[in-house]
Design a binder for these strands. Sequence first.
DNA 1: ATTACTAGTAAGCGAGTAT
DNA 2: TATACTCGCTTACTAGTAA
Lengths: 224, 224
Amino acid sequence: MKPYLIQTLKELALLGAMRDRIEISSFELARQLGTSQQTASRYLLDLDKNGMINREFGIKKQLIQITQLGAEVLQKEHIDYQQIFELPNRVYFQGRVVSGMGEGKYYTEQKGYVDQFKRKLGFVPYPGTLNVEIKYVERNKLRMLKNYGGINIDEFKTKNRTFGGVTCFHAKIDGATGAIVLPSRSHYSNVIEFISPICLRKQLGLKDGDEVKIMISLDKKLSQ
Amino acid sequence: MKPYLIQTLKELALLGAMRDRIEISSFELARQLGTSQQTASRYLLDLDKNGMINREFGIKKQLIQITQLGAEVLQKEHIDYQQIFELPNRVYFQGRVVSGMGEGKYYTEQKGYVDQFKRKLGFVPYPGTLNVEIKYVERNKLRMLKNYGGINIDEFKTKNRTFGGVTCFHAKIDGATGAIVLPSRSHYSNVIEFISPICLRKQLGLKDGDEVKIMISLDKKLSQ
DNA sequence: ATTACTAGTAAGCGAGTAT
DNA sequence: TATACTCGCTTACTAGTAA
């Protein structure tokens, strides 16, 4: 779907073509779009060909209504803008399940972490992390999360070593509740570590390579 | 502002470039947009040239942040989509003040109308209508209003003649409260008749040709 | 009036490549 | 590695005009 066709569809929607058939000539549409009559006519042909609009020809002008398909295209755009302007308390990721190197289990079993998880997140994690590889470009969103700041899990020491602090965010993976864990130090990674009270691989039937959706809440209290 | 540049800007915003500088190469952006690295690079140059983004060059990749101007462009788009999906209870028009032929005064002084206006709209109109000519293409929005249905003022008879029913909507013109009057019968016109308890021409200092903004509420009760 | 075809021109695209 | 230039090709545009 080409950007200028979406713009045209939006213009038609603004004139009411989502509710009703609207009467509009290619010349009028051209004026609205700041283009020529010929181009507007071509746009309408393209939109029709793509099933975005229905056209009905009267004696003079045509009646145009946006189809279900066209409405869906606009709805998608709308969701994008909502993401940008209205939901700054939620961030979404899409990624693929990958295997870690087993170190997740070691960390999530440390008492120093477990106690804090229980107190600050409200659950004791099932041992191990579910690792989700996100698109490389989306590490920017991870960076954003870190800058924003989440639920801080403090560093602690045992006899043998120091365990570094991490930042957590309440999150859902394919609908299942849990949290993501970002090491406070360390560089930006394209792998998200997910912890949960349940065994996610079993509960969700996940195996390496499966596509998953992660929703991260910026609220520090669990809302639901 | 070309549609594909707006789409690019939107993509950057979705990656968080409204809040923070994001690290993204032209190659990565190209993948996001489904285009070539060269084209993505050109888009970024164009956006920069138009003052929509700020760029900072590191050793390898660049840091990009959306400027105030860029944010305004996206905000405008967002408002359009809100108009389409979220505010179906308000319709906006822009138009020019024009002179009627004095018949507005005659009608708005008829007791049969005045009593109903008072009861159903909550005010007695100042004699006369303020006529606003809207863009021809926007008559589609008027048609939509009629289909939707407003506050019905019933027809009535005097000794001499019958006065037809009209449909009204609560409305504001440049912030001043009143209502618009659409004859129930009659064809679609590109002139909106506005009534108000005050003399709008005097109160707002309006003369023929002045640009005005009309906000029409689809609520049948006056909300405010 | 319209819509939309044709044809010539302008703008946009991406492979190759310089830096 | 990057970004972004050139250049040949494709797509998109509008004027003219047919239907």
